Amino acid sequence: MARYIGPKSRIARKFGEGIFGPDKVLSKKNYPPGQHGNSRKRKTSEYGIQLREKQKAKYTYGVLEKQFRNLFEKAESAKGITGEILVQQLELRLDNIVFRLGIGNTRAAARQLVSHRHITVDGKVVNIPSYSVKPGQVIGVRERSKSMEVIANSLAGFNHSKYPWLEWEDTSKVGKLLHVPERADIPENIKEQLIVELYSK
């Protein structure tokens, strides 16, 4: 399965929330897409609820099934609460950090900036969106990319104090990962325990 590039509003309506950010369509049509979307009142099974939560996490962070499974296995073998570690690992992906720093206005835009070699980690260009950023590492915009309109527009008026685990220096356009975020600080509405239950079957 390739990465989803279809209508974002359709997916947001499927989950009943703006997982890709504010969505005008969702406020008008807050019911699932399709011919029977407004009249469907079928009871979802326990498995269906768990699967839906996993799909929501995958769409939110733009991760494919194999990558997601690998992240889960890594979280499962680590010390601590598996679900929390899984969400923290998703947060530490380079494309997500670029998005959180406001360099890209969506995760898809941030992923493209990374892939097109506009982002540096500790001064070296990194073009792997799934690269796992470690505390203390510095994420910046490549020197020749700093004047790009798309980056300037995204950073304009962005509130960098939203995320206490990140630090931003506007003049040099670099950010720093101060520490791994606590689960309570991560704003995504994901019930990670359901994902753990799904994979544990």
Rank of each mutant, 00 (worst) to 15 (best):
R3H: 15
R3D: 15
Y4Q: 11
I5G: 05
G6I: 10
I11N: 07
I11S: 07
R13I: 13
G16P: 11
G16D: 12
G16Q: 08
G16K: 10
G18P: 15
L26H: 10
L26A: 11
K28D: 13
N30M: 09
N30C: 05
N30S: 10
N30L: 04
Y31S: 08
G34Y: 08
H36W: 14
G37V: 11
R42W: 03
E46Y: 07
L51A: 14
L51Y: 09
L51R: 07
Q55R: 09
K56D: 12
V63H: 01
L64K: 06
L64N: 06
F68Q: 02
R69G: 03
R69T: 06
N70Y: 05
L71S: 05
F72V: 07
K74S: 13
A75E: 09
S77L: 09
K79Y: 10
G80T: 03
I81S: 03
I81W: 00
G83L: 03
E84A: 06
I85E: 06
I85R: 07
L90S: 05
L90K: 01
L92Q: 08
L94D: 03
N96I: 05
R100N: 07
G102T: 04
I103V: 14
A109N: 05
R111E: 13
Q112R: 13
S115P: 01
H116C: 07
H118Y: 14
V121A: 07
V121M: 06
V121F: 02
V121I: 11
D122V: 07
G123A: 07
K124A: 15
V126C: 12
V126P: 03
V126E: 05
I128T: 13
P129T: 08
P129Y: 08
K134W: 02
G136E: 05
Q137W: 10
Q137I: 06
V138L: 01
I139K: 01
G140V: 10
R142F: 09
E143W: 00
K146Y: 03
M148E: 12
V150H: 01
A152C: 04
A152S: 14
A156Q: 12
A156W: 01
F158D: 04
H160C: 06
H160S: 10
K162C: 09
L166E: 04
W168E: 02
E169K: 05
E169G: 02
T171G: 02
S172C: 00
K173D: 02
L178S: 04
V180S: 00
E182H: 03
R183T: 13
A184E: 15
E188C: 00
K191G: 00
K191Q: 14
V196W: 02
E197K: 10
E197W: 04
E197P: 00
Y199F: 15
Y199C: 05
S200T: 11
